[in-house]
Design a protein around this nucleic acid. Structure first.
Lengths: 260, 260
DNA sequence: AATGGGTGTTGCAGATGTTGCAACGCCGTC
DNA sequence: GACGGCGTTGCAACATCTGCAACACCCATT
């Protein structure tokens, strides 16, 4: 809508791929060098872009700070985190939390081997939307029309032989997930990794986030992983209750949570 | 420099403080509502801003994705290399760069007496994790629980009489390193070789790499080597600044590195 | 030393894009 | 049912942005 801003913002994803010099930026933006220079300068003044010693441009520190604040302001994450940690301590495997935003599904928290991480590993990264358990959960909650529209627009990469092959299969899978209230990814993204996931509901019943537990084949088989499903679902429900305010909101005594 | 972009970018820190509606944004920007609307729309299209259910605006999830992608594409070695060369040219001794990965500490760069070396000597090889200065620096940054777990699992080979003897001694050493912000290896790996090292920090404060300077006893004594510590630390700090994108606010002529 | 190609930078006139206004549609409240 | 608040749209006036061309600078080359 605003050409200047549009151009300026287009520089960011471009620089995310790696440092670039003025000429490269101008070229890939399709504008004159002087124009690119002014845009970069403005971005620089706001700290979103950093100029390294070889004069090339990179994303700057303020962007990281903003990203940090943005994630911290997501209150689902804040509420869910202790539950995720508790679950992780019991079952040991990696636990993820994800949300759906603007056509993407992003991991916003991760607990791995009793090692809570910020801005690390996959947090912030879009997930493989056609196969991930959390993605299925989040998309399954969309109104049917939108669900179909989204499914049609997606690509269906064949990560493994068990990846979702096409829109029809995906919609069928979503219907299943919607009905049963949980989801799996059994080797659909990486051959040797299985996931099980459950949805987190808001006060109005809509799915606001999804969580999953992942483990490699060599540690537990898919069947064994599925035996953990009740625990995962109970955790998701506990988070839902607290998030939607239906919970005994005892702000202290968090030990009373029933996500055992 | 560019008014439109400047205004648009000013919205981001504003929203970082919490969600705001159109009127608030317009007011705090000092522009007309319609102007603010257009800017917000542009930010929205780029995913930097998200519109929540009550129509208020928040920071968007793409911010993470960007920050995430940027850190992944950041190459410490590339950034550090010129600094290491500069330091080497001043002090002459061998300079190493190392990272922590999958339970190992690996040298990823080395500069030896005006001999910029890649794929040579120990680059890529695991270091003696219980004694090397860089290993101490990298392990000292781990959360306490993991630090202890790692220390318990290691072997403590007696390379020399001054090698770290056991887990308890190692943890004590790590605590010291953590506190003082630098590390040494005085004859712990090879009787006649001393090292001093300093950590390189990322934008989130965590230690992403470590560098060290090594010299044989016959060239400089341990005491003499320690006099170089300030230079080493300054170099590490300069690399940290550049790596984390902490821009000198002076838009122009910030001279250059202060790792002198 | 001098030349040349490669950068990034500046000033400027033209015109494109942006601005603020005023009016409209919408929704909840009084 | 009218009011007030809020977001949205179309438009004309204007300020801002654009691309050009020339310049400054650094480095490698001759």
């Amino acid at each position: 809508m605003s050409q200047t801003v549009d151009r300026a913002l287009s520089i960011l994803p471009l620089l995310a791929q790696g440092p670039a010099d003025l000429g490269q930026v101008a070229d890939r933006l399709g504008v004159h060098k002087s124009t690119a220079l002014r845009l970069l300068r403005t971005l620089h003044e706001h700290g979103l872009v950093y100029r390294q010693e070889d004069q090339r441009y990179r994303l700057g520190a303020r962007l990281f700070a903003l990203a940090q604040e943005a994630v911290e302001n997501l209150d689902v994450r804040e509420i869910a985190h202790p539950h995720l940690v508790a679950l992780n301590e019991r079952i040991g495997h990696t636990v993820h939390l994800a949300v759906h935003e603007e056509g993407e599904v992003l991991y916003i928290d991760k607990v791995e081997s009793r090692y809570p991480v910020r801005m690390y590993s996959r947090i912030g990264k879009p997930v493989a939307i056609t196969v991930a358990a959390v993605a299925k959960l989040l998309l399954a909650d969309l109104p049917e029309a939108e669900r179909r529209a989204v499914a049609e627009k997606l690509d269906y990469p064949t990560y493994t032989s068990r990846s979702t092959p096409n829109a029809a299969a995906f919609l069928t899978e979503l219907a299943t997930v919607r009905e049963q209230g949980w989801a799996t990814d059994l080797g659909g993204h990486e051959e040797s990794i299985n996931c099980i996931g459950a949805p987190i509901h808001g006060a109005d019943g809509r799915v606001v986030a999804a969580m999953s537990v992942s483990a490699p084949n060599v540690v537990v088989t898919a069947e064994e992983l599925l035996t953990l499903l009740p625990q995962v679902r109970r955790t998701a429900e506990a988070i839902s209750r607290e998030y939607s305010g239906t919970a005994p909101n005892t702000p202290s005594a968090q030990g009373s949570s029933d996500d055992r």
